[in-house]
């Protein structure tokens, strides 16, 4: 069985002025893989996935997505962004647009889809995240969990092959976390390639093929979930896991 490498990070480094956020990051993601990234705040995990669709520029090393290298080349950036979806901690829905317009916006303007068709696509994804009845509402009228599901639908509407999740449940009230995780699990079962930054270890155990622990800008540990949780190699991982699992 041949595996296709969809994301390759090779010796990626990034600085904010003097602050070295990413240090020699190497990472290979295969098609259909689900990778969960955890680590203390400020460890660079968000920055790493934000580099993958160039919301942040890395300073050296190479990032290749689907065989296209991310450089200053705007065409390449466009290609990659079309194939990589992203879900944010703060949802970042467009408050001035209705739910359906939020979802159909990119298909209409980026994919040049006719409006009617784009709205059909949008409705289909709304059904997938189980809130088709909210289509005409505005983001401000929805609960956090609903907003995040709309945000997922919005990303999916561009039909990406890779989804990035940047702490998707951190801004949610506890009772809403499950509805978002359920959607993500469903997505995983359908074979989507996913990179998820999260502290939801239950979710990680169910879904992840690979666990990554980051600290101080480095990937400290990368392992299969059963190894990662049962016998972590690094002391820092052990400490982190003990803090996060026994709070």
């Amino acid at each position: 069985m041949s595996t296709e490498q969809v994301i390759q990070l090779d010796k990626v480094n990034k600085w904010y002025d003097d602050f070295h956020v990413l240090k020699d990051i190497d990472l290979i993601v295969e098609k259909g893989q689900k990778i969960v990234i955890c680590g203390p705040s400020g460890s660079g995990k968000s920055t790493m996935i934000r580099c993958i669709n160039r919301l942040e520029a890395h300073q050296n090393g190479t990032i290749i997505v689907h065989g296209t290298e991310l450089t200053n080349d705007l065409k390449n950036i466009d290609i990659i962004r079309k194939n990589v979806g992203m879900v944010f901690q703060q949802f970042n829905l467009f408050p001035h647009l209705s739910v359906i317009d939020n979802i159909s916006l990119a298909p209409i303007w980026v994919k040049k889809m006719p409006k009617g068709e784009a709205e059909e696509v949008a409705m289909a994804y709304l059904e997938k995240v189980k809130i088709p009845e909210q289509a005409q509402k505005f983001p401000g009228q929805l609960s956090g969990g609903q907003q995040q599901r709309v945000a997922i639908a919005r990303s999916l509407a561009m039909n990406p092959d890779i989804m990035l999740f940047d702490e998707p449940t951190s801004a949610l009230d506890p009772e809403m976390i499950k509805e978002v995780l359920d959607v993500m699990i469903q997505l995983a079962e359908e074979g989507m390639t996913m990179l998820v930054v999260t502290h939801e270890m239950g979710f990680a155990k169910t879904v992840a093929d690979q666990m990554i622990f980051m600290d101080e800008g480095r990937i400290v540990e990368q392992a299969k979930p059963e190894d990662f949780f049962n016998n972590p190699k690094s002391d820092r991982t052990k400490l982190f896991l003990s803090q996060i699992l026994n709070h």
Binding site: T71, N72, D73, L74, K75, N76, I77
Partner: peptide, 12 residues
């Protein structure tokens, strides 16, 4: 030409 037009820095 493509490189000049589509490169972020040279376009700017």
């Amino acid at each position: 030409i493509r490189k000049i037009i589509f490169d972020e820095k040279s376009r700017s």
